[in-house]
Design a protein around this nucleic acid. Sequence first.
DNA 1: AATGAATGAGCCTTCATTCAT
DNA 2: TATGAATGAAGGCTCATTCAT
Lengths: 201, 201, 201, 201
Amino acid sequence: MKEGATEELIINTAKNIFFLKGNYHATTQDIADEAGVNRALIHYYFRSREHLMEEVLNAAITKMNERLYLITQSDVSFKEKISNLIQLVIEEMLKTPYLENFVLNEHNRLNLSCITNPHKKIIDNCLGGFLIEMQDEMQKGHIVKVDPMHFIINLLALCAYPINMRPIIQRTFGLEDEYYQQFIQDQKKVIFNLIFRETTD
Amino acid sequence: MKEGATEELIINTAKNIFFLKGNYHATTQDIADEAGVNRALIHYYFRSREHLMEEVLNAAITKMNERLYLITQSDVSFKEKISNLIQLVIEEMLKTPYLENFVLNEHNRLNLSCITNPHKKIIDNCLGGFLIEMQDEMQKGHIVKVDPMHFIINLLALCAYPINMRPIIQRTFGLEDEYYQQFIQDQKKVIFNLIFRETTD
Amino acid sequence: MKEGATEELIINTAKNIFFLKGNYHATTQDIADEAGVNRALIHYYFRSREHLMEEVLNAAITKMNERLYLITQSDVSFKEKISNLIQLVIEEMLKTPYLENFVLNEHNRLNLSCITNPHKKIIDNCLGGFLIEMQDEMQKGHIVKVDPMHFIINLLALCAYPINMRPIIQRTFGLEDEYYQQFIQDQKKVIFNLIFRETTD
Amino acid sequence: MKEGATEELIINTAKNIFFLKGNYHATTQDIADEAGVNRALIHYYFRSREHLMEEVLNAAITKMNERLYLITQSDVSFKEKISNLIQLVIEEMLKTPYLENFVLNEHNRLNLSCITNPHKKIIDNCLGGFLIEMQDEMQKGHIVKVDPMHFIINLLALCAYPINMRPIIQRTFGLEDEYYQQFIQDQKKVIFNLIFRETTD
DNA sequence: AATGAATGAGCCTTCATTCAT
DNA sequence: TATGAATGAAGGCTCATTCAT
């Protein structure tokens, strides 16, 4: 195989299993089978299941942080930033609906120290400017006056929760797939309106 | 031991491990050790690990549904109901911070059909009256006009997400425990204000 | 319960399970269930499963030996003795078709030394007179001249084998239950004729 | 190791334990130890203990059936066939003295349906011609007139019973190993004579 | 780079047995 | 005498991991 192609194949297969299918209990055999390679190859490239998991986990964390980064650093108006963020976060999460939960589970399972966190600095950097923008918007009365941290976390909550908890929510309220897909699309506008107080009446 | 005390002890220990500590990978030995009993006793009372898990899971689902039920059926004003719901959900979740996620994981792992759901009817019943109240409030302009399902799910999202994702959020934004505890307490008012548009300026 | 009644009940149940049903893998729970008593009672009366098994085994061995004893010691003609022996052995074995095999299995499994064998003397005693009778019959040409040990063992073989191996034989040759029951009844006369050369032509 | 050698080693070891030693309670560890391999390897090749047992059992059944097949299909006189059958069955059984009993036990333990029986057809085929030969011999007065099924089963009984029940017989009658070995050898001629009425006087 | 074979550790489960009542 | 509760030992099985090729 091409240089690195197999390694790539394995990790992508793993991501698929964990982020898209949510099969958190996948064994090395499961991953190897789905990748169409020999089980021992996983150890050849990644030394151990744990190492592979770490790489997958870090990729997941990076992905989560990138979303925030890309949005906040973009050169558009605040409203547009928020709008983009909602759009991007929701669409990305729909592509990997089990990603956030996977990160949470692994984060909880692992000794936290083993997670490399080069991301924190990035977050800190990009957050700074964003907080200033936010306070500005509050001053102008465009958004509800609130602690910026609440603002950001609640924004994420409104985007992420319906996707993370989708199986539970659908089951609890008896909602069909088709309905729920539309629900999530509608949610984009609902979030925006809730934040910017643009009522439709 | 007292009648049924040991069985109770085991299942409470299990709930503690899964809901409070979030140790989803606990073995029967882990549970037995923490309960201070012999491992075989778990099988004596619950036949298999899976049976125990089912009981724990059903207890969790019941707990989640009860929250909604208790609130919506109470005989107080709508505003008060929402206020109580926020208060109750957050406080309850703080007591068992890994419960929702546990349910999600199990729900995903299991063949969904094996989960008894006698709760759906309850939900449906209590939801009916609540939806009417909600529409009434929207008419009066007390809350943002929105599809009631969005209203409820977003309400839950704002309560639950910061607690479910707490480890990730704290780590991502570099927040200390003390700060975050206060954050969650503040969140109660933030949610209320966001919903009822009561700005503090 | 009456003195000794429960103990009797347990051992009879065990015999039933091992001799009649051939469930050699029966657990103490199986035996207790079938006897309708608590499992711990088995240990109360028999100390251990092994002790119970020993008692059952010795009862089985006794039963096997008694057959020979009763016949050979009876005060009838040789021909009649043989006829009675065939009749008795086959009928007794039909009542407990798994007994001989049970003895064989246990004999093989156990350290042989633990089997009390007060029976040997009995056998030796009763065999003596029988051997003399046998030689007498051979002299007279009533039966095929043959080493007496061959005569006895072959006699038993012809009676026991079709019952011991019944499941295998029926399956191998595709024989129905009804047919085989008749087969065993017919076998009585076949054995007799084979030994006493009384052909039917 | 050579292609398939280890798998062969394991199953041969198992056969040895079950057919030759009669250790029906052998654990996977026992088998692995005797084969000099790791216990997990048994599951690697046979998936479960039950699967291994099935293969062993089927091998045993095949072996039993082959004996009959080889003899009855051979192109020699009827007398020779019987002589060969006695010789072959006894010598084969001496090599694996616990085989028949193992089959019986497993047959009894298992749900019979799970035993593949492709042998039945073979038996039926080879039996047909043999039955005709037998009736011919009876007409000629060479053998006792009797239902052919009795003839065959009794023939097997006389060969197999002394070997199957050997431990019990030796113990019951107090026979030494050396004596019994000779007894079995003598039995070959005794059987032949009994069937063909060739008395030695 | 890739793979089949082999292994050790650990987990679930069963079962005979003991104990307290 | 009888029983429910509790335990230790052992067995089957899975899985990540290593090794030889």
